[in-house]
Simulated scan of single mutants.
Amino acid sequence: MKNAEPEHEPIPEPADLNGHFVPPPPLIPFTEPWEYELHFPRDARGPAVARTTLKAVLGAHGLGEFTDRAELLTSELATNAVRYSLGPAVVRLRWTNPVLRVSVMDTCPVSPLPLAQQNADAECGRGLLILDLLADDWGGCSLGESLFGVGGKTVWFELVLGGGDPPSGGGAGHGSGPRCPGRPCLPPDHRPAHRDPSRSTS
């Protein structure tokens, strides 16, 4: 005898304390700002969860144009957070038309040094090279003791809808320059300037 299909209770319509129907909230207009935040533990599955969440959010808000670049960059930063920190991490997505900013925060106060400032064969810093090539803007800084009650860092990148110019006042030169674990903090003017991937280098 086959197992019977489980019976599902109908989902009741949302109601207030007086039992009146509560209509669902309207969709946020495309040009209005929004923000999502995902907390995940120090677990090898964390970066995959972050990628899945990011794809779902961008798809729901009609920002599929960003998905490929954002997924790759978020994966790099989330993987670094899991690999080099000893605690949980946070991925935050913020949309302020036409800019998507993705920030990854973890409990490690030090960051990888850009590959250009170390041996060309080194593994450390390759994620930041990808950031430099694919992001419209990016940066990072150390955090105080507000994140999970301990110090840490945040590394962020921005993608601009339609490939326009990134907003002024952000990115290169603001905050502490990324650095490798165990290395001293580099002053902002030591960090390589953002490169436009559309320009060829000679």
Rank of each mutant, 00 (worst) to 15 (best):
D132H: 02
L113E: 09
I28M: 09
T79Y: 07
E76I: 02
T67I: 14
D136T: 06
T79A: 11
P47E: 02
L77I: 01
S75M: 11
A60D: 15
A44V: 14
C108E: 10
L73R: 06
G59Y: 05
R83M: 11
G87M: 06
A50F: 02
A44C: 06
E76L: 03
L63W: 00
T53M: 12
L27I: 10
K55E: 15
G127C: 07
P114E: 02
H61W: 01
K55P: 00
R69C: 04
E35C: 13
A60T: 14
N119D: 15
Q118D: 12
R83N: 10
T67C: 08
A122L: 06
T67E: 12
G87L: 08
H39D: 13
A135G: 04
R94H: 10
L129S: 14
L73V: 05
D68S: 14
I130Q: 12
A116C: 10
T74P: 01
H39L: 14
D106A: 04
G87W: 06
T52F: 12
D121I: 12
V99R: 05
L115C: 04
A81N: 04
N97A: 15
L113D: 09
R101Q: 15
C124V: 14
V104P: 01
W95M: 05
V99E: 09
V102R: 00
E35D: 12
E65A: 13
A70I: 05
P109S: 09
F30M: 10
I130R: 11
A89E: 03
T96F: 01
Y84K: 03
T52R: 13
V99I: 11
A44K: 12
R126D: 06
M105L: 15
D132Y: 03
L134K: 09
H61G: 03
F66G: 04
D43P: 00
N97L: 05
S75P: 02
P109I: 05
R92C: 06
T96L: 12
V91I: 11
V91F: 06
G46D: 05
L72S: 09
E71G: 11
A120H: 10
L38R: 00
E65N: 04
L54K: 03
P109G: 05
D68C: 00
C124L: 14
C108W: 05
A81Q: 01
C124Q: 13
C124D: 11
S85G: 07
V99N: 09
T53D: 10
V57N: 03
P112K: 00
G62Y: 03
H61I: 01
A60N: 14
P114G: 01
D68E: 15
I130S: 13
D68M: 11
V49M: 12
F30K: 13
E35G: 07
S103C: 09
A135I: 00
D132T: 01
L27T: 14
P112H: 10
N80F: 07
G87N: 01
L72Y: 07
V110K: 08
L58R: 02
L129T: 15
P33W: 05
R126H: 09
D136F: 04
A50M: 09
